[in-house]
Design a protein around this nucleic acid. Structure first.
Lengths: 218, 218
DNA sequence: CGCAACATGGGGCCAATCCCCCATTCAAGT
DNA sequence: ACTTGAATGGGGGATTGGCCCCATGTTGCG
């Protein structure tokens, strides 16, 4: 715990414009912190974000969830592992309930929508740095009205990703070294959980709900 | 044609952080223009962008392609219709060849990647305002090495969108009021053009290549 | 320990897909 | 006037998918 003094931050986003915009807001004295928050590093993909957080151990990590090489809740978990005192604040462009839910569960300290006015972010950051947690109102509402825990098992999620990559049941069976029937079983039970009834519907659903990472290597 | 004097611009992006970042860069004197470029409006979706361009008739429109309500090349064409003297500069997060190709064909004055350093944008803007055209090097290279004209007919593109929305052949036939066999024919010939051999592969390909608009309500 | 959940397989059935063949109409070029 | 291409529609067959039945192991948890 730190008592008083300059804060240090790392910003991670795949778009340079966003990084410089955030840097400007953070570093401007009086905007968020009376002394300004010093940005000690910028990451343009998930792996860089994890590496920088590990090296710099910043007070704050401003993180986009849609990034190349690594994205989503996994980055949050990784950063936590290596730098437990870093407050992780996620900015997301996707508002899909699946992704939001995963992020909240992963234990982010702050969660904001890129579409909303960033004043909300700037206003809440000081209290987040002091240990408070804040999830944007729109997300809290969305999670409440739809607590639909369509949770998939590990194998099922794996199937989903491979199906979205364009692999057939037979392909998947070959790649994973298991029977086609087993693949079929996983796919079938997954589709029942999600209440869809064909592979195209499954793909459309997964895309819409953000159950998988579209930035991943599909 | 204007000779000398202050430039006026409109910025359009669905993320507030990006808008404020661009506004700051444009308005800072000396950064791009000696007197700075005045931002007279901000749009957070495609329709707003078209409306603002029509009202303000700015010298410059900085435009994101992935926006709610309207996106992609359509916005460029619309803006051209209503404000032919506005220089349209597109910033894109997607680097998919299909989208890039459509944008170049639509006649943008500038095309830049959000992932690249924005210095490239700032350096080129003055000459674009003077009437030069500039497409980011990475896109020129991508278009050259892959002039693959996988062009679909109107009906085929329509099939593609409905398939991606999760509709089966039978569904589509019902919606469009045509025979299932005709739907099958369109889908088959489309898949041959694209060299894919199943609906999941088709979807994966379309997503990867940006042949369809992922921002549309699918 | 029991027991639920997960992962692994198999048989079988019907519907949907993938892909070949074919024909007709209609509009746009050259 | 001839050809090309898009759009419409059909027959038929091989393959795959969607979903039901069933069984076997292996975990994790109270």
């Amino acid at each position: 715990m730190k008592e008083r003094g300059k804060y240090y931050a790392v910003v991670a986003d795949d778009h340079a414009i966003v990084r410089s915009g955030l840097r400007a807001a953070l570093e401007t004295p009086g905007q968020i912190d009376p002394d300004g928050i010093e940005v000690t590093g910028e990451a343009e993909n998930g792996l860089e974000a994890i590496a920088l957080a590990r090296q710099h151990k910043p007070d704050l990590l401003l993180l986009d969830v849609q990034m190349p090489l690594a994205g989503g809740a996994e980055v949050v978990v990784e950063v936590r592992r290596w730098s437990p005192d870093t407050k992780i604040v996620v900015l997301t462009g996707v508002t899909a309930i699946g992704m939001i839910s995963a992020l909240v569960d992963s234990g982010v300290d702050g969660l904001f929508s890129k579409g909303d006015d960033n004043q909300e972010l700037y206003m809440r950051l000081p209290s987040i740095l002091r240990g408070q947690r804040y999830i944007a109102r729109r997300f809290v509402a969305a999670l409440k009205e739809k607590p639909k825990g369509a949770q998939l098992t590990g194998r099922e999620r794996q199937m989903l990703n491979m199906i979205l990559a364009g692999h057939s049941n037979k392909d998947i069976a070959g790649i994973l070294g298991i029977s086609v029937k087993t693949v079929d079983k996983h796919r079938t039970s997954m589709m029942q959980k999600l209440d869809v009834h064909s592979v195209p519907q499954l793909m459309a659903f997964a895309l819409r709900e953000g159950l998988v990472d579209p930035a991943s290597e599909l």
